[in-house]
Design a protein around this nucleic acid. Structure first.
Length: 352
DNA sequence: AGCGCTAGCAAGTCGCTACG
DNA sequence: CGTAGCGACTTGCTAGCGCT
């Protein structure tokens, strides 16, 4: 009996069987007679026995734990994806170790290290940087399967990925605005600084969703024969107040946009708030379109037009993919699954 | 079929020996 | 005397084999 309570030895002794038999009765493997099983279970109950999963992992080589690393747990996008993950992995007997990185690479590296040291059976990662995959590759080389969600990362050639087709998602949003007759369309994005790189057209990989969406914005304008006005590309950090400021700047322009696209839901909420505070009539004076079908988008008036991402499905598929990787033997080619987003037109976008 | 015996799992710590 | 090097042993549990 250790400080952690009864061990299998104690249970076996009380039940009058060997530790092997006690283990079989409690673990549900091998052959045990009904009478013996009952004796063992009774002994375990009397002693308040709890199996030592550390010891079990030592011999089975697995911890039945998966690591999930995201940039922002407070973002409903990741919260919903996490639900998709656990709904799939939990019935399979896996527990989740969650880490929030705040988008900091160092924080992500630490999380991956800690999870490796805790011997998780696999990891699902929404990476902080598209070009920094060395720590993930290191984990994979050590035999820990990694499934990337939402973002591709270069330098991790064997990792599966589940992402959203953001080119298509942005195209949907832009098509909608163009069909409504808008010509001065602005974008609020975290990827504003990458405009030149996005326009040069190279680098299919190594772009995060916001940058891909910015590319979709540019491509849509090009296709419509409209020039990209850099004054209409507003940079914002990943927070509401920064998006708020960006929206104010756009609306203060001498020739303001008639429609604004926000490349994620956090930015959209800040922009929406700015339009309200400025006393602007929305959608009459400016149309607004965002991402993700969050509750607030239908609680406000006008309701926000959004591009709905299959967020839950993203998580569920990532979970399923990781489970097959964990149970698979030998090398299999990495899978790159792209899911489709769809436009949900609501009151915040109207014809020009 | 039902059970016991025992090796061995990972990652250490402990204690002994040999040596400068 | 200090210490580097190394084998023995530690934990709780399960896999595999063998006996009845």
């Amino acid at each position: 009996m250790t400080t952690h309570g009864a061990s299998l030895i104690d249970v076996a002794r009380l039940a009058g069987v060997s530790t092997a038999t006690a283990g079989r009765a409690l673990g549900g493997y091998g052959q045990v007679s009904e009478r013996t099983r009952e004796r063992v279970l009774a002994a375990a109950a009397e002693l308040g026995y709890r199996p030592n999963s550390l010891a079990r992992s030592m011999i089975t080589g697995s911890t039945n734990t998966i690591g999930v690393v995201v940039t922002d747990v407070a973002n409903p996008f990741f919260a919903t994806a996490l639900r998709g993950i656990t709904d799939v992995t939990s019935p399979a007997g896996f527990e989740v170790l969650l880490a929030n990185t705040g988008g900091e690479l160092s924080s992500e590296q630490r999380a991956v290290t800690v999870m490796s040291e805790k011997r998780v059976d696999g990891m699902i990662v929404a990476a902080a940087r598209p070009g920094e995959g060395a720590h993930l590759k290191h984990a994979m080389d050590a035999g820990v399967p990694v499934v990337l969600i939402d973002r591709q990362v270069s330098g991790v050639p064997d990792a599966d990925s589940i992402t959203v087709d953001n080119d298509h998602a942005a195209a949907e949003a832009m098509e909608h605005l163009l069909e409504l007759g808008h010509r001065r369309i602005a974008v609020i994005t975290e990827a504003g600084g990458q405009l030149a790189r996005v326009r040069s057209g190279n680098r299919r990989r190594g772009l995060f969703p916001s940058a891909v969406r910015l590319r979709g914005y540019v491509n849509a304008l090009d296709a419509a024969g409209l020039a990209v006005d850099s004054a209409l590309v507003a940079s914002a950090r990943y927070d509401r107040s920064s998006a708020y400021d960006a929206m104010v700047r756009l609306l203060d322009l001498a020739d303001p946009p008639t429609a604004v696209l926000c490349t994620d839901n956090v930015l959209a909420s800040g922009a929406y708030r700015a339009a309200q505070d400025l006393g602007l009539r929305m959608p009459a004076e400016v149309s607004l379109i965002g991402f993700d079908d969050e509750p607030w988008t239908t609680l406000v008036r006008p309701e926000l037009t959004i591009v709905e991402q299959p967020t839950y499905d993203l998580g569920a598929r990532a979970g399923r993919q990781l489970l097959t990787r964990i149970t698979a033997t030998g090398h299999q080619r990495p899978q790159h699954i792209q899911l489709r987003a769809k436009l949900v037109a609501r009151g915040s976008t109207v014809p020009r």
